[in-house]
Design a protein around this nucleic acid. Structure first.
Length: 282
DNA sequence: TGCCAGGCCGAAA
DNA sequence: TTTCGGCATGGC
């Protein structure tokens, strides 16, 4: 990887294919949207980022310090996705999914934000998850400036939400999920250490997460994958059954290690695209 | 208008 | 252990 400092931004080269669209439309992260001036823009870890592709480079509108501390790990830039894609493409069925989503990266998100957004995700489509998440941030997150005239907010920390009551969350329109969000916020702010789960084997970490109210196997595995970088997690649920229908010769679940978690994201994205008429759902 | 959505929970079978 | 209804709401 080569990092070149440009005027007001950084240019990243030699990282293989990186697709902001596939990375932010594949259903793992709900706070980055297409920017009116190109690429994608959003907030993570209390910082704003816009990123776009130009010629053979990936451009980040950020500074060197934030890049090293936040965006380099967040965007998983040090992993060799080319090698992973080559392995997955050896399976003729998986190759369809890889070809569709080529350039997506499994993000390293904040575990608390990941937990919260995937609690909100249950039985919702992605546009609605995005809307609920933005309302939650606008109401309870710390303002961090503005972009193109739109105010920006950090994701609210668990202590802030733990001080709320269910009626406070009514504008979020989260329905029965509001209770789960508040319950998780109270557990986290009273000592449940999400980061400590990184040191546990995946199955033990999953068991701990499932102790939280409203967190089942699916939400737990999404937190393991996107928030704790346990890429051997593999959320198996209703969409996987649909994938099995799509691929009539059986579903490829022989994967292990980091390949499994990355593969499931290509598959999820591909299956969803097939259901919405062969193009990425926005 | 009706179906579906990155589910979870508790009860019943 | 598996199945099923209920939950709260909005996108399409």
């Amino acid at each position: 990887m080569v990092v070149i400092e440009r005027r007001q931004c950084l240019e990243i080269r030699d990282i293989g294919v990186f697709s902001p669209e596939h990375t932010f439309e594949c259903g793992q992260c709900f706070r980055f949207v297409p920017s009116p001036v190109g690429g994608y823009a959003g907030v993570a870890f209390g910082r704003f980022l816009r990123l776009w592709c130009e010629r053979d480079g990936l451009f980040l509108q950020t500074n060197r310090s934030d890049f090293e501390q936040i965006w380099r790990p967040f965007l998983d830039l040090d992993r060799d996705y080319g090698a992973i894609e080559r392995v997955l493409s050896g399976d003729t069925q998986l190759k369809q999914a890889v070809d569709f989503g080529r350039g997506l990266r499994v993000l390293a998100q904040d575990p608390w934000e990941t937990l919260c957004t995937f609690i909100l995700s249950q039985c919702c489509n992605i546009p609605r998850i995005r809307a609920m998440t933005e309302t939650l941030c606008r109401l309870f997150g710390v303002p961090i400036g503005e972009y193109e005239g739109t105010p920006l907010y950090a994701f609210p920390d668990p202590q802030r939400l733990a001080a709320c009551l269910e009626p406070d969350l009514a504008p979020v329109r989260a329905g029965y999920r509001a209770r789960y969000v508040l319950s998780a916020a109270r557990r986290i702010s009273s000592g449940f250490d999400l980061n400590a789960l990184r040191g546990l084997p995946t199955d033990q970490a999953r068991g701990q997460l499932m102790q939280l109210e409203g967190v089942g196997r699916k939400v737990a595995d999404c937190v393991l994958l996107f928030g704790l970088q346990k890429l051997d997690a593999f959320p198996v649920d209703t969409w996987m059954k649909k994938a099995s229908n799509l691929w009539d010769s059986g579903f490829p679940v022989h994967l292990f290690g980091e390949t499994a978690g990355i593969a499931q994201q290509y598959i999820f994205y591909y299956v969803r695209s097939q259901k919405s008429g062969g193009k990425a759902q926005k």
